[in-house]
């Protein structure tokens, strides 16, 4: 087993931090370490926290973690922030709101930039969560980028998804993105000390009642780029359906955090009922495998298409002699598909 992986299992935080970097950069040793640690995953409760910018996600993570710590549970946090498309750099500032967690060895916080990935997470987020899980943390909290659009990626790796809204952001029903609501297991109306609270809560309730309880799988596949759509789950094999809970919080003062923790516990208990968790993981893995397969196939196919071939085809498309689709067929035919080896 790789030395770093062994150290991670022994609780070495520096080794964990180093391995997170190696995995994030897909450096040599990344696959081996992940393989060595994979059998040790599957124990953490993975909670996603998403919602529009400034809704209070990081502040909530701070308060939630403190509450979990009084229960002696250990917590790892993965906080994702956007990479600037112009420079490729990023400012990772979520820790600013988590200063209460400093000095606690039962907490590990890691910031990550999206590096061009869409959907509110980074490409390496899933494997990073696996490392944190293998390191033995009881809970892994994943804060997504707050773009307020379609951060449904989180539903593909979290077991419990919190969607955080704030008054004044969500009272216009139009502003509440249906996709983001559909992935919510728990809706947190944070900044409950702000005016407009009742409107927001009413709006969210209405949205929840209007929307039939769609299963997360449907949302995951329909917003995703999966090649085939995972089988929709009927109410019968997913009984009883989870109805999202609305919780009001003031994260800055810790108000409502106990109720939020209760809701998270209730959802976790629901998952452990009747094999829900196993079915959820099965669907998430199905989507992950399709993604990985697509990426790997594309990479291998592209090894056989030179930049020169590509630009000849593009020229023909520009001359209107080929459609883009015909160009793809031409490339596939030229590869004698099915016979390529490395």
């Amino acid at each position: 087993m790789s030395a770093l992986a062994t150290q991670v299992l022994q609780g070495d935080r520096r080794a964990l931090a180093r391995l997170l970097t190696i995995v994030e950069n897909a450096r040599e040793g990344s696959d081996d370490a992940l393989a060595a640690l994979f059998p040790h995953t599957g124990h953490a409760h993975i909670v996603g926290i998403t919602g529009p910018p400034g809704a209070g996600k990081s502040t909530l993570v701070n308060a939630l973690t403190q509450a979990l710590r009084t229960d002696q549970k250990t917590v790892a946090i993965l906080a994702v922030d956007p990479t600037s498309p112009f420079s490729g750099g990023a400012i990772l500032g979520d820790r600013i709101r988590m200063r209460d967690l400093a000095g606690d060895t039962g907490v590990f916080i890691r910031s990550m930039a999206t590096r061009g990935s869409l959907g509110g997470l980074a490409r390496a987020s899933r494997d990073a969560v696996r490392l944190l899980d293998a390191a033995g943390y009881d809970h892994v909290l994943v804060e997504t980028v707050g773009a307020g659009q379609n951060e449904v990626e989180i539903a593909r790796m979290a077991q419990t998804v919190l969607v955080v809204e704030a008054p004044g952001m969500g009272d216009d029903v139009q502003a509440i993105k249906a996709g983001i609501l559909e992935i919510a297991d728990i809706l947190v109306v944070n900044k409950a000390d702000h005016p407009g609270l009742d409107n927001t809560v009413r709006g969210l309730k209405m949205m929840l009642e209007l929307g039939h309880p769609a299963s997360r799988t449907q949302v995951m596949s329909h917003h995703g780029r999966a090649m085939s759509v995972a089988a929709p789950v009927s109410a019968s094999d997913d009984q009883p359906l989870w109805m999202p809970i609305i919780v009001q919080t003031v994260a800055t003062e810790g108000r409502g955090i106990e109720a939020l923790l209760d809701a998270i516990r209730a959802h976790r208990a629901h998952l452990h009922l009747d094999g829900h968790l196993q079915r959820l993981e099965h669907r998430q893995l199905e989507i992950e495998l399709q993604e990985r397969l697509r990426d790997a196939l594309l990479a291998r196919l592209l090894e056989h298409v030179s930049a020169q071939d590509m630009s000849v085809l593009i020229e023909r498309i520009q001359q209107r002699r080929l459609t883009p689709n015909q160009a793809v067929e031409t490339m596939l035919a030229g590869l004698r598909f099915g016979q390529f080896e490395d």
Partner: peptide, 25 residues
Amino acid sequence: RDAGMEVVYTGLRQTPEMIAEAALQ
């Protein structure tokens, strides 16, 4: 950031221990 780096910013009033811990994690 504009030079292409990833910058972890931890905010005001950091103790030496907080800085070292953040650098490690």
